[in-house]
Write a protein that binds this DNA or RNA. Structure first.
Length: 445
RNA sequence: CGGGGCGUGGCGCAGCUUGGUAGCGCGACGGUUUUGGGUACCGUAGGUCGUAGGUUCGAAUCCUAUCGCCCCGACCA
């Protein structure tokens, strides 16, 4: 993309009503625009990152054997009356009526609806296990939205629902989600720690939240700091192997890590003092096992091998997709701007032409752009007629992890400069070598 | 919902106390500057002062109502 043809409304000054760094940077980098309290438009740059995050979530869900579908944002109230949550959910649920005065609601989650789909089409244990998920906009009418997309009222969430014949199978689904989530967050450059949590309005007794450590987190967290060094990496996981999946979950949950809701002082004191840490975290996902809470209320049953009919065992599993942008920026930025992890960056590299209109510089930039494209890499080419300083400042602000700087001086020596946004380190390379280096860097992402 | 604060060009703000026909910086646009980390200078455009009503010869400014937004708290993916 040539910057002169793109839509990137960057702000030099910080909007006064943005308090935390991710919100400020998203506004300054032209990623979002607030339309109402807690409701945002996603401008092109923000939308690109959002789509990349969605894509990672999809890939890791499908890798775990989970099946995507799409449910509507608006739901009939009757479904929620069946589960009893129409009255229980309270003011957070946005309720509306259509022209026929039928009660509808803008879904804050989809347990009822997915259970309805399940009961209509599935009746036998032979159809299980089944895990369905979608990535859809949700609305929760928060009393006080804040922190930009971290705490919006409208937000994009991945929510998945497993259906299993018995408790053991459902717990395997729970574990499968935990492992899939670990890899999902790692691919986004995050260290998200699964912590034992409280279940809240979803219900159920087994639940973990995934927390990204950050000063601005909304939850206080207590943990053994050895958990932060654990990595799933690219190890091959057989998601059908219950023991293997459970062992991985054990590896990541045996060390103490809890939010303030479930904190246990006695257990925490057993952690060696040098590893005992208290901090704050941003919640980026949660998994629940809740058994037959909804299936019983809504009559979602299956016939088992011995011919009896039992309510299906369920759980639900969420990832705050839009919130993740905020969380990633909170975890990865500096005083100049955002630093995107390679896995979610809106463009793989930026190209800065130091002397627009110079035949050699223009030609080299065009060549780089095409060469990157040929290797499957996207570039944002700053071809504006601006001073070098302005171009660098924009690139630093929007946070592309790699930048190629092209100018007449370097070209006279046959080189361009490849700069790492995170470290600030530069190396001079021929244009061809710079493209090779980037292709090599991104093979791991 | 309780407490606090703010609505003035795209963004950040001044003006309001002591009513007199709206100003600054940034940005945008047009030039000059040819420039390797937000350059300098010249010029141009852009505002029913959140909205409604009231007081007044006259309201951004005073009064009333209303809408919106932000911050702290309780609550939350």
């Amino acid at each position: 993309m040539r910057l002169s043809r793109y839509f990137l409304p960057v702000l030099k000054e910080t909007p006064s009503d943005a308090q935390i760094v991710s919100h400020r940077l998203m506004l300054r980098a032209g990623m979002i625009r607030q339309q109402a309290a807690g409701i945002y438009s996603w401008l092109p740059l923000g939308y690109r990152v959002l789509r990349r995050i969605e894509a990672i979530v999809h890939q890791e869900q499908e890798r775990a054997g989970h099946i995507p579908l799409l449910m509507p944002t608006l739901q009939p109230a009757d479904l929620w009356r069946e589960s009893g949550r129409y009255d229980d959910y309270g003011q957070e649920m946005l309720r509306i009526q259509d022209r026929h005065k039928r009660d509808l609601l803008y879904g804050p989650t989809n347990e009822e609806m997915i259970t309805d789909i399940f009961r209509a089409h599935v009746g036998s244990y032979k159809d299980l296990p089944l895990t369905l998920y979608h990535i859809q906009w949700k609305f929760r009418d928060e009393i006080r939205p804040r922190f930009g997309v971290m705490r919006g009222r409208e937000f994009l969430m991945k929510d998945g629902y497993n259906f299993d014949v018995d408790r053991d199978a459902a717990l395997h689904a729970y574990n499968r989600h935990m492992v899939a989530y670990l890899r999902t967050y790692e691919r986004m450059g995050l260290t998200a720690i699964p912590m034992r949590a409280a279940s809240g309005p979803i219900g159920g007794d087994n639940t973990h939240e995934f927390l990204v450590l950050a000063q601005t987190g909304e939850s206080e967290v207590f943990y053994d700091d050895r958990v932060t060094g654990l990595k799933l990496g690219d190890r091959a996981v057989d998601f059908d192997n219950r023991t293997e999946v459970a062992d991985i979950c054990g590896e990541f949950t045996n060390l103490y890590a809890r939010t303030d809701e479930t904190h246990d002082t006695a257990l925490f004191d057993a952690v060696p003092e040098e590893h005992r840490k208290v901090g704050r975290g941003i919640e980026v996902g949660q998994i629940f096992y809740f058994g037959t809470k909804y299936s019983e209320a809504m009559g979602a049953t299956v016939v088992t091998a011995d011919g009896s009919r039992v309510p299906v065992e369920m759980g639900s599993h969420g990832i705050g997709v839009s919130r993740l942008l905020g969380a990633i920026i909170e975890a990865s930025h500096d005083e100049k701007g955002i630093i995107w992890p390679e896995g979610v960056t809106p463009f793989h590299a930026g190209i800065v032409n130091l002397k627009q209109g110079d035949a050699a510089a223009d030609g080299a930039c065009d060549g780089l752009y095409k060469a990157l494209e040929a290797r499957g890499l996207t570039a944002l080419y700053d071809d504006r007629d601006e001073r070098a300083g302005a171009k660098f400042a924009t690139m630093d602000l929007i946070g592309l992890p790699w930048r190629i700087t092209v100018g007449p001086r370097g070209l006279a020596k046959g080189v361009v400069e490849l700069t790492c946004r995170r470290t600030g380190e530069s190396e001079e390379l021929s244009p061809e070598a710079a493209v090779d280096r980037l292709a090599q860097i991104y093979t791991n992402w």
